[in-house]
């Protein structure tokens, strides 16, 4: 039984418009459980819009999105159920600056999953160990470096024990010397079998960790390939163009 037999995310012919601008044009794909999918493409191609439709931060206007058997509609219970299975890490970290690191991580488990505080904090400390910054628990986000903040953001998302993790350009706002520490954490997550959807420009990471690379351009999926296939023998011209631009410097 290969990984592909257990699709946990099914996207069928999804369209989205912003006014007259057709942002997503018929996106269809499937993600299996435990698979790591890297989404890349030029800016404005719809990558971020796409993964934000999966946890309903944007609403898709046509097509179906089914996550772990739950269809994503306007039904609030469906939305809440889907959001509890998906964790998201943002480009701008979006940590809550008025709460400590520990409080950032325990907020949702306490208030959404109604866990007791002790249990939530235990889980939080375990996660902080996992992202390798347990000593920062009582500091405020403003006192941490960018790389540390993003790792806290990853821990915060993991605290809800999601089945799927979405990453929206997690390292694009970081100084170069801090990108490695975040990518290390993401590598470890991938190796542990978590289903991950990563929008990124970090091709080294993609080559090493991804099971599949999806190339977006102008609202459509232009190419889907294995990492080897994509980087050494891209099938389409647009992919070739993109790779030439990215890898030339």
């Amino acid at each position: 039984m290969t990984k592909r037999d257990n699709p946990i995310i099914i996207v069928r012919d999804v369209h989205k418009w912003y006014g007259d601008f057709h942002a997503l044009r018929g996106i269809s794909m499937e993600v299996s459980q435990g698979e790591v999918v890297v989404i890349c493409g030029p800016s404005g191609s719809g990558k971020s819009t796409f993964i934000r439709t999966i946890n309903r931060l944007e609403e898709h206007e046509r097509g179906d999105i089914i996550v772990d058997g739950i269809r994503l509609t306007n039904d609030v219970r469906n939305i809440a159920a889907i959001r509890s299975e998906i964790g998201m890490v943002f480009q701008q970290f979006n940590l809550f600056p008025h709460l400590t690191v520990l409080q950032n991580i325990t907020l949702a488990p306490i208030w959404v999953r109604k866990r007791p505080r002790r249990e939530a904090e235990k889980i939080a400390f375990e996660l902080l160990e996992r992202v390798k910054i347990p000593e920062q628990a009582h500091k405020y986000p403003g006192q941490l470096s960018g790389g540390q903040q993003q790792r806290v953001a990853i821990a915060r998302a993991l605290a809800m024990q999601p089945k799927i993790m979405l990453f929206d350009e997690p390292t694009s706002a970081l100084d170069p010397e801090m990108i490695k520490e975040v990518l290390d954490v993401m590598r470890e997550l991938a190796r542990s079998g978590l289903t991950m959807l990563v929008v990124t420009h970090e091709m080294g990471f993609a080559r090493e960790v991804a099971d599949r690379i999806v190339f977006f351009d102008r609202g459509e999926i232009v190419e889907e390939n294995t990492p080897d296939g994509f980087f050494h023998a891209p099938k389409t011209d647009r992919a070739k163009q993109f790779l030439a631009n990215i890898l030339s410097h």
């Binding site: 099914i10 058997g69 739950i70």
Partner: peptide
């Protein structure tokens, strides 16, 4: 490709939980 059905138990009440209806 397996055809997965909805998991939510009470499709008839879906209307009441629709975000737009609640708003």
């Amino acid at each position: 490709m397996a055809d997965l059905t909805q998991r939510s138990p009470l499709p008839r009440l879906a209307f009441l939980r629709d975000v737009r209806f609640l708003r």
